[in-house]
């Protein structure tokens, strides 16, 4: 079953929010690049970056929400999430993207591209324990 979206976006997506990378460097959320996530995950002992390809975007019965189906990782595991239309995802090589970029910019001041089927988002999984 899809996850239930929260009624408000987390504060760290607001433009100007300070983000700490794994090596301690501080960056504003709007300045993050694909390399920042990849390098931070390399340092992490628990987390690894996976590619999550957007397979479907469907409307939700929840107002202002969508259900996004991702194909995650090399095994192409199908994962559905229900999020608000303005929720930003980080697309490889493109940056922040949401289903409704105008609304994201309006609410968070964060510049976004339009999230579309076929986009490859950055997501996290646990590294396998050895």
């Amino acid at each position: 079953a899809p996850l239930t979206p929260s009624s408000a976006l987390p504060p760290y997506f607001m433009k100007g929010s300070i983000i700490q990378l794994a090596d301690g460097e501080l960056k504003r959320v709007e300045d993050l690049r694909t390399e920042d996530f990849l390098q931070s995950a390399e340092v992490s002992t628990e987390l690894k970056i996976d590619s999550s390809t957007v397979e479907r975007i469907d409307s939700s019965r929840t107002p202002d929400a969508v259900i996004i189906q991702f194909s995650v990782g090399e095994h192409k595991a199908q994962v559905c999430v229900e999020v608000l239309v303005e929720y930003p995802f980080f697309v490889f090589g493109q940056g922040w993207s949401s289903c409704c970029p105008d609304r994201t910019t309006q609410l968070l001041a964060l510049s976004c591209a339009k999230l579309s089927v076929g986009d490859v988002c950055i997501s996290l999984t646990l590294k396998s324990l050895r």
Partner: peptide, 25 residues
């Protein structure tokens, strides 16, 4: 006297959705 406000700092991984695959290796 105005106390300086501390600026919140968020860890990088909080920005990334945690999409655990439903199948294991």
């Amino acid at each position: 006297n105005v106390e300086p406000r501390s600026v919140p700092v968020f860890p990088w991984h909080s920005l990334v959705p945690f999409l655990a695959p439903t199948q294991s290796d």
